[in-house]
């Protein structure tokens, strides 16, 4: 597949529809949504590719946790985003193990906690089971198959500073903002 294909076919409408799903996911942490409007080069899933096209542009440095020449070329063409190291990234993409250690990413400033990175984490499995989630956006509690809990607990402990996570698996995604409390079950 060429780097020229797989982007939005109708950017204004598709990015509006895609963002609406992403916003619902961020507003309801732990809920799983389908989002597959773009087709990035394999092995990246369509949900992760769509999120990148929704959020990345020339003003957002993107960090790729593992080398991915096809994806880098695809992003440069469709999003025009600069690729950066972890320390200056606005968005980061990778598998959970490749993104470690997490303390490389900007977590915002005490007076500007929004200046933090959003991490797009590709997982092999995304289901509503496992650790228990509570907090803003969650009515009672939710469950989500997270790769671990310690890192997310440490991230929440730093709130309002911290990282926000978009967890993707194939055509599906769920969000885990810093405001969410994660407990082992």
């Amino acid at each position: 597949m060429s780097a020229l294909t797989g982007g939005f076919t109708d950017p204004a409408i598709q990015s509006a529809q895609g963002f609406r799903i992403l916003m619902q996911a961020m507003a309801h942490p732990g809920t799983i949504h389908d989002l597959a409007l773009a087709a990035p080069p394999a092995p990246l899933g369509r949900a992760a590719g769509t999120v990148l096209l929704l959020l990345a542009d020339p003003t957002t440095p993107v960090h790729l946790a593992a080398p991915a020449p096809d994806l880098a070329e695809w992003l440069r063409f469709h999003a025009g985003c600069p690729l950066s190291d972890a320390e200056t990234a606005t968005l980061a993409l990778g598998r959970w193990s490749d993104l470690q250690p997490l303390d490389r990413f900007p977590v915002g400033l005490p007076d500007y906690p929004d200046r933090s990175a959003t991490l797009i984490v590709e997982l092999d499995r995304l289901e509503n089971d496992g650790p228990r989630l509570t907090g803003p956006g969650i009515k009672d509690h939710a469950r989500l198959s997270l790769p671990e809990t310690a890192a997310f607990r440490a991230n929440h402990a730093r709130a309002p500073m911290g990282l926000d996570f978009i967890l993707t698996c194939g055509d599906q995604l769920a969000c885990l903002p810093r405001s969410t409390i994660v407990e082992d079950c």
Binding site: P11, A12, S15, A16, F19, L22, M23, M26, A27, L54, L55, D57, T59, T60, T90, P113, D114, S116, T118, G137, A159, P160, D164, P177, R178, S179
Partner: peptide, 17 residues
């Protein structure tokens, strides 16, 4: 589109904090 992306990123951060 660029403006909407900038606003959308701000909305996601606002929802997270």
């Amino acid at each position: 589109e660029q403006t909407k992306r900038m606003i959308r990123r701000a909305i996601l951060k606002a929802l997270a904090i």
